[in-house]
Design a protein around this nucleic acid. Structure first.
Lengths: 117, 117
DNA sequence: TAAATATGAAACCTTATGGTATTATGTCAA
DNA sequence: TTGACATAATACCATAAGGTTTCATATTTA
């Protein structure tokens, strides 16, 4: 996996903790899936959940803190869109265990090949 | 990224929520890093943190629920070891956004190439 | 077998979290 | 410019989460 850090102006460097915290809630993970399909206003995101707009807004704020989404003001609306780059710290942290996992996959592959002989 | 699910006896199928929840705490992420180096008893893990063994034990239980570690009884000790396969649900969920991220990288690559012309 | 060791488990405390309701503010449109 | 609309902000509530203390249980080992 290739990781490239790109400095962008106007945003705090997200702590890994903020990213993992943002991902820890099922509603927020669902919001990320939604935003991967379409940019949405807060009201639009809210229609997909059985909770108040205020609650959805809180989730969006936490996602923004984790830098997983970016929010753009457009008139009286706030357009929320996914920030794919924001996942980098998460992938980065997990890569340590990805390697571990790849080793296990290799072992599995070897075992299968041996089994086929 | 290739993902393979392997059924194993004697363990609950971990919900993605349990995995992400387990990863959401910095102490637990630190424990995972420790266990990627060495298998450890609860007491051994505890020496690395400024909290009681009981607290560490709770974290280990949450990690076990998320299937990120496995615990093996040996006499009066409990050997905690990393379960690399347990990360699969996390990688699986994130792969959706990995793709998104790769697309962005491609776009960046294209932009750079175009710029060099 | 008795003492020390390693863990399990329960009760309890404080703070964080996810949710609501209410009120305020800025923007659009007739 | 007034009413409707989209969001912001605050206070508040119930439960979950992270931690401690205390006590019980199972193994070693002297």
């Amino acid at each position: 996996m290739i990781l490239i850090g790109i400095a962008k102006g106007g945003h705090m460097t997200p702590q890994v903790q903020d990213s993992f915290k943002a991902l820890a809630d099922p509603t927020r993970r669902e919001i990320l899936k939604l935003l991967s399909q379409d940019d949405m206003t807060i009201a639009e995101v809210s229609t997909h959940f059985d909770m108040t707009r205020a609650a959805v807004k809180k989730h969006l704020t936490i996602l923004e803190t984790g830098d997983l989404i970016r929010v753009e003001a457009r008139g009286r609306e706030r357009i929320n869109h996914l920030n794919p780059d924001g996942f980098a710290p998460v992938f980065d942290w997990l890569s340590h265990f990805d390697q571990f996992w790849d080793d296990r996959l290799s072992a599995l592959k070897d075992a299968i090949e041996k089994d086929l002989q």
